[in-house]
């Protein structure tokens, strides 16, 4: 492992995290500029670590470093907050999350359950139908079978995630059923036409 790129990479990541802290804490006129510089430092640091330790090991170490530096800052902030907790308790009001009631509204569990079924088994089936449709499309376009297969393996979980996330966020059941139908129908029609 090369020491200089690793050292510079570590500095870049630490500097990037510091800049992110400055930028996210308070919005100033230079907010966008500082955020961009921060991410450039972080990605530059990861790149340098990739040069130093290889794209697999080096990037993994850089990612862990990124997490550790952020956690150190977070622990420092938590310590400061803990020391000052009595003073703040009098001044700081509640936030959005502290307003959330501890009591579950009626029918919440049934709604969660129906949302889960729409997002998981049904959403998964729709994602697979769409994936198969893409596979057949790639095949008909003359893409190598190995490439189409691997693309399909990557695509299935991504599509399912997108559908599941949409459904759990927009938890209006009828709209979700319509969305699933609209996603599945073109896939089914395409597969029916191909076969």
């Amino acid at each position: 492992m090369e020491t200089l790129p690793a050292f510079l990479g570590t500095i870049g990541i630490a500097l990037g995290i510091g800049l992110l802290r400055v930028s996210w804490r308070r919005k100033t006129r230079l907010h966008s500029l500082i955020t961009m510089a921060a991410w450039m430092c972080i990605f530059g640091g990861i790149f340098l670590w990739g040069q130093a330790g290889g794209v697999d090991w080096g990037v993994a170490i850089a990612t862990i470093l990124f997490i550790c530096v952020a956690m150190l800052l977070l622990v420092f902030n938590a310590g400061t907050a803990f020391v000052n907790r009595e003073d703040k308790r009098k001044t700081v009001g509640s936030t959005d999350q502290s307003k959330v009631s501890d009591e579950a509204p009626p029918g919440m569990y049934a709604k969660h359950l129906s949302t889960f079924f729409l997002a998981a088994p049904i959403g998964g089936s729709v994602a697979i139908i769409l994936t198969l449709s893409v596979f057949e499309l790639l095949q008909s376009l003359g893409v190598e079978t190995a490439n189409s297969t691997v693309t399909t393996f990557f695509l299935a979980p991504l599509l399912w995630t997108a559908i599941a996330t949409w459904i759990v966020i927009d938890n209006a059941s009828m709209r979700n059923v319509t969305l699933l139908f609209c996603c599945a129908a073109p896939g089914v029609l395409h597969l029916g036409w191909v076969k």
Binding site: L74, N77, A78
Partner: peptide, 8 residues
Amino acid sequence: AFAFRFSG
């Protein structure tokens, strides 16, 4: 992202 509140 860097805040941890013990107050409240």
